[in-house]
Structure formats: C-alpha cells, structure tokens
C-alpha cells in the first residue's frame, strides 16, 4: 500500500529542500508520496520542474503560512 511521508525542510535554503526530496524518493517505493514543506521560495517552481525533467508526478502544490507544501508521487 502506498504511503505518504512528510519532510519538513522549512528553514533550509536552495537546493536543500530538493535534495532532501530526492534522497527520500530514492528510498521510497513506486507509488509512494513525499510531501515536502519548504520556506524556500524557489521550491514551489523548482520541485515541479525537477519532477517534469526526471519523470515523477506532482500531486499538489499549496501555499501555507510562510511555506509551501509540494506533494510528489514516485513514478519510476
């Protein structure tokens, strides 16, 4: 059964949140989701661009109080 993991990367600067996401995806199973929380403004566009490049799926992106949540599903 697919799982969703949360990574709280708030406070980390570029490219820290992206690198934390990638490390988590390496260990995840296909279909699992990782929800990255980032206060780095670039993450909301960087993470979807990275997913489009390497072939993972962005499930949702949402802005909260001072941070963004980007949910990524491991697709390969």
């Amino acid at each position: 059964m697919a799982e969703r993991q949360k990574i709280d990367a708030r406070g980390a600067f570029c490219p820290g949140p992206l690198m934390e996401l990638i490390a988590a995806l390496k260990l995840a199973d296909i279909g699992d989701e990782v929800d990255v929380w980032s206060s780095d403004k670039g993450s909301a566009s960087d993470i979807p661009a990275w997913c489009a490049k390497v072939g993972h799926a962005v499930v949702e992106t949402s802005e909260h109080d001072g941070y963004w949540s980007v949910v990524v599903r491991k697709a390969k």
Binding site: A12, F13, P15, G16, M19, I22
Partner: peptide
C-alpha cells in the same frame, strides 16, 4: 550564519544521488 547547505556536502550529495 544561515542554514545554507555546505558546498562540500552538496558536491557529495550530487555524487551520491
């Protein structure tokens, strides 16, 4: 003074991942 990834560690992550 801020939480910026260390350059040496970033190079290491690039090699690892």
């Amino acid at each position: 003074t801020q939480n910026v990834p260390d350059a040496i560690e970033l190079f290491g992550q690039g090699k690892m991942l």
